[in-house]
Amino acid sequence: MSGISLNLPEDLSNSLADLAKTNGQSASYLAMDVLRDYIEHEKALTTQIELAVKEADQGKFATDERVAAMRARR
C-alpha cells in the first residue's frame, strides 16, 4: 500500500476524526473508504455520461412524449 499526505482544513479534519472515533475506525481507514466510494461513483457516472454522449452522437434521443412521461412520474 502506498501512502498519501493531505492538508485538510481544520473543520474537515476534526469531522473526519470525530466520525472515525464514533465508528471505531482510524481516520486513515475512513478516508480511504470514502475515497474508494467516491472514485467508484465517479467512474460509474463517467461511464454513463460517455454512453449518453455516444447515443446522442448516434441520434438516439428520448421523444418528447417519453420525457413528458418521465416528468409526470416525478
Rank of each mutant, 00 (worst) to 15 (best):
M1G: 10
S2A: 09
S2Y: 01
I4L: 07
I4F: 07
S5K: 10
S5D: 09
L6Y: 03
N7C: 00
L8E: 04
E10P: 02
E10R: 05
E10S: 09
L12E: 06
S13P: 00
L16N: 05
L16I: 05
A17Y: 01
A17P: 02
A17W: 01
L19H: 03
K21N: 10
K21M: 06
T22G: 02
T22C: 02
G24Y: 02
Q25L: 15
Q25A: 11
A27Y: 04
L30A: 00
L30V: 00
A31M: 07
D33R: 08
V34Y: 11
D37V: 15
D37M: 15
D37G: 15
I39Q: 13
E40V: 07
E42F: 06
A44L: 14
T46F: 10
T47P: 02
I49W: 12
A52C: 13
A52T: 14
V53A: 10
E55G: 05
K60E: 12
F61T: 07
A62V: 09
A62I: 09
T63N: 00
D64M: 02
D64K: 06
E65P: 03
R66S: 14
R66T: 11
A68D: 05
A68G: 02
A69I: 01
M70I: 03
M70N: 06
R71T: 00
